[in-house]
Every structure is written in structure tokens, then in C-alpha cells.
């Protein structure tokens, strides 16, 4: 049986991962739980949170909450991008290496954002 008392003050995501590890189910559930924390919501022509800080290998999911389509396109020489997302549309991008990655919506270029990828997010 999983001992919840061993892990006080942990988030649901962490608990899920520990449960998964503890009962030998594997890391799929844990990965899904972690991914949910790396969401950038598009609302009122704004990316949020902005910036978003993640760890190498994490995936950022953009979710369009506006009633108008948006996309995501790298700036500063980057080539990564998301195709246009209609309302409630999503896009996943995985960032494998540390660094700062700026982006904007190419339809509404006043919308800009940044992804910070850090090995230690507590720094």
C-alpha cells in the first residue's frame, strides 16, 4: 500500500508520480501530470504565464482561450512554431536544452512571450 504519510506537503502531480513509481506502473501517468503544469493560456490576446519557466525536456502546451485564432512563432532566429490554433486549440512544443526562447503570435504580433528553460527552476 502507498504510504501518504511519507510524503507530506507534496503536490498532486508529485504524489501521482510517486504513486506511479511506488506501484510500478511506470512514468506515463507522472509525465502527463507534469505536462499539465506547463500550460500557457492565451486569453485576451495575452500569453500567460509569461515568461514560463520549465526544465529541459519539458513540454509547453499553448491553449487558445480566445474566440479568435492565434499561433506561436519563434523570434530571435528560432524556427520552432505552432500552427494556427482556433478557439480551444492546443499546441505542444518540447524544449530539450536550457536557454531563453522568445516567441510571438504572427497574426497579432503585439502578443509576445518567453519560455525559460532551466536545469534548476528554483534558481
Amino acid at each position: 500500500m502507498f504510504d501518504f504519510g511519507r510524503y507530506p506537503r507534496l503536490s498532486l502531480a508529485v504524489l501521482l508520480s510517486l504513486v506511479a513509481a511506488d506501484i510500478g506502473v511506470g512514468l506515463l501517468i507522472a509525465a502527463s501530470a507534469w505536462a499539465a503544469t506547463n500550460q500557457v493560456k492565451i486569453s485576451n490576446f495575452t500569453f500567460g504565464p509569461n515568461p514560463i519557466t520549465i526544465s529541459p525536456g519539458d513540454t509547453v502546451t499553448w491553449i487558445n482561450g480566445d474566440d479568435i485564432p492565434h499561433n506561436v512563432r519563434a523570434t530571435g532566429g528560432g524556427t520552432w512554431k505552432c500552427a494556427v490554433m482556433d478557439t480551444d486549440g492546443t499546441c505542444d512544443i518540447t524544449f530539450k536544452v536550457a536557454g531563453e526562447f522568445t516567441y510571438f503570435c504572427a497574426l497579432h504580433p503585439k502578443m509576445t512571450g518567453k519560455v525559460i528553460v532551466k536545469t534548476d527552476k528554483t534558481e
Binding site: 510571438f104 504572427a106 497574426l107 504580433p109 503585439k110 509576445t112
Partner: peptide
């Protein structure tokens, strides 16, 4: 005229 191509981040 076409002014909706190659828009720059933060621009018009």
C-alpha cells in the same frame, strides 16, 4: 496593398 505578411514581434 498587402500589409499582413512577415509581421515582426511587437510590431504592427
Amino acid at each position: 496593398l498587402v500589409n499582413v505578411v512577415d509581421l515582426k514581434a511587437g510590431g504592427l
